[in-house]
Design a protein around this nucleic acid. Structure first.
Lengths: 106, 106
DNA sequence: TTTTAAGGTTAGTCTTCACTAACCGTTAGT
DNA sequence: ACTAACGGTTAGTGAAGACTAACCTTAAAA
């Protein structure tokens, strides 16, 4: 599942998609509601939601006429875990580097 | 500092930049070493490193001829914290939604 | 001093992709 | 059945930016 992480980051790399993503943080919303307040057309929002859904950052569920989108918490957890792991690894690398440079000039 | 988060994600949204970023996970490297093994020229790598540096994901330090790049752990921690916070918030929103729908059909 | 290697910068090209407009299907209300 | 609202899809366009090539500076080695 590590492969998916890159395309998730890639998906959020677009500012509009990031804005949509943040709009869903507080709870599920229909497409029209998401589009309201964004400086792009509903069509653009729809396309972005499609991408976010494909990469696993949101899910959708229809209620009659409406399509309700919500955050996929598991997808977000994956991102957090990735950066947490990355952070740990780079910190460890930093320690190793500090120790070896300490040996060079004791 | 929350503003920086978006441009950090935006920076990592580019696959090549992500590859460079991951290349530095295990420890600091000079530019040439980073470029080695990547399917782009050293010039491209240099430009990408400039972006990563501006957004605060890497730092650089010169050693004689070479420019050594390393991960900025604080920058990564910011990303992790953001997604962790986002994850918590969306989970909470999910619980709220589940509870209210429970009241509707008891 | 000349040479070699390392890295940053710039100009220009080319590809990617975000966006709009127009259209279609679907559902609920009249 | 007709209408209105909600969403998804497509084609075409435009702009952002990733990339290369050429050039520059700097530092160490010859």
């Amino acid at each position: 599942m590590k492969t998916n992480l890159k395309i998730k980051v890639q998906a959020l790399g677009d500012p509009t998609r990031m804005a949509i993503f943040e709009r869903l943080e507080r709870g599920p919303l229909p497409v029209g509601e998401i589009a309201r307040g964004l400086p792009v057309t509903r069509s653009a929002v729809s396309q972005h939601l499609k991408v976010l859904k494909i990469v696993g950052l949101v899910t959708s569920q229809r209620a009659a006429n409406r399509q309700i989108y919500r955050i996929n918490a598991d997808g977000v957890a994956g991102l957090r875990d990735y950066f947490d792991q990355f952070w740990r690894e780079s910190l460890q690398a930093f320690k190793r580097a500090a120790e070896s440079s300490l040996k060079e000039r004791p």
